[in-house]
Amino acid sequence: MKAGVGLFLAMSDSDRKIRCLVAKVGLDGHDRGAHVISRAFRDAGFEVIYSGLHKSPDEIVQAAVQEDVDVVGISILSGAHNTLVPKVMAGLEEYGALHDTLVLVGGIIPEEDRERLEDAGVDGIFGPGTPMEETIEFVRNNVKPR
């Protein structure tokens, strides 16, 4: 057995960095919040992949599956959350990745839309002004074991 393989096999889930995809879906061009949360996650010791702007739900799903992430954080301010987020959720379900991926939504989400997103499988919704430590702790406490 190669040394690297033995080291990998000895690593427990608790030793592995949490892998996060921070994603911007649709035509929303406001990405300051996505950059802020990406940096906060990185500073907390998470491995972060940023999707870049204007990604389709399918592109986000493909990136999440290919990168084998633990967390998908969708940043959306465009008001299209009721259309785009369920498409991401359906794509993750189609690839069998929904049950082992923590899905978060951040942005302007009206109170009356939250239940609909949670029913679609979103694990946490974070609005403007949420303390970074609250989001980081939510991830640490709710990331699904692999």
Rank of each mutant, 00 (worst) to 15 (best):
M11L: 15
S14W: 09
D15L: 11
D15M: 09
R16W: 04
K17S: 15
K17V: 12
I18V: 13
R19E: 13
R19N: 09
R19T: 15
C20R: 01
C20A: 13
L21W: 00
L21E: 04
V22W: 01
V22H: 00
A23Y: 06
K24A: 11
G26E: 10
G26W: 11
G26R: 01
D28S: 08
G29Y: 08
H30Q: 04
R32T: 09
G33Q: 01
G33Y: 10
A34F: 06
H35C: 01
H35R: 12
I37C: 07
R39N: 15
R39D: 09
R39T: 15
R39E: 14
A40G: 10
R42P: 01
D43K: 03
D43L: 08
A44H: 01
A44I: 12
G45H: 15
G45W: 08
F46D: 06
E47P: 03
E47V: 02
Y50E: 10
S51C: 01
G52Q: 10
G52V: 11
L53S: 06
L53W: 14
L53Q: 11
H54F: 12
H54R: 12
K55N: 15
P57A: 06
P57S: 12
P57T: 11
P57L: 15
D58I: 11
E59G: 13
E59Y: 13
I60D: 00
Q62A: 14
A63I: 15
A63R: 10
A63L: 13
A63V: 13
V65P: 00
Q66S: 15
Q66Y: 10
V69N: 06
V69P: 04
V69G: 02
V72G: 02
V72T: 02
G73C: 08
G73Y: 02
G73F: 04
L77W: 07
G79N: 11
G79Q: 03
A80Q: 07
H81E: 05
N82T: 06
N82A: 09
T83D: 08
V85C: 05
P86E: 13
P86H: 07
K87T: 05
A90N: 07
A90V: 08
G91P: 06
G91D: 00
L92R: 00
E94P: 07
E94W: 04
Y95W: 03
Y95A: 14
G96R: 12
A97M: 05
A97F: 12
L98T: 03
L98Q: 13
H99R: 12
D100F: 04
D100E: 06
D100H: 12
D100C: 12
D100Q: 14
L102R: 02
L102T: 06
L102E: 01
V103L: 01
V103I: 10
V105T: 03
V105Q: 01
G107L: 06
G107S: 05
G107R: 02
I109D: 05
D113H: 11
D113P: 01
D113K: 03
R114K: 13
E115T: 15
E115C: 03
E115N: 09
E115G: 11
L117P: 07
E118K: 11
D119P: 05
D119E: 12
G121P: 08
G121D: 06
V122N: 01
V122I: 04
V122S: 01
D123Q: 10
F126S: 02
G127W: 03
G127D: 02
P128H: 07
G129T: 09
T130G: 03
T130Q: 11
P131N: 08
P131D: 10
M132N: 14
M132Y: 15
M132L: 13
E133H: 03
E133T: 13
E134T: 14
